[in-house]
Amino acid sequence: MFLIDCPHCGPRAQAEFVFERPVETIFSVDTPTAELVEKLYTRTNPRGVSAELWRHARGCRAWLRIDRHTVTHVIIAVALWNPAP
């Protein structure tokens, strides 16, 4: 279990948050079929730093982008999700 420093709420227990999906699997509705299949059904699944979409489900409900190490669980960055980078 780890702490996630929500930009709205400050450091909160991970139990308040829900993992949604890796950022690389996010697609828009007009994505061509082949790319869509690739996005929906494949993962880099890194043993290392991963960019992920989480939600502060039992807090402010914000969508967050979290850069996190999948072995040590060290969190490198937390930011409000901005779909148009």
Binding site: Y41, T42, R43, T44, N45, P46, T70
Partner: peptide, 18 residues
């Protein structure tokens, strides 16, 4: 559990999340 990592060594991506 290391399927994704080891397949990655061969340049592959799998429908797998660890």
């Amino acid at each position: 559990g290391n399927s994704g990592h080891v397949a990655g060594l061969a340049g592959l991506r799998l429908p797998v999340e660890s």
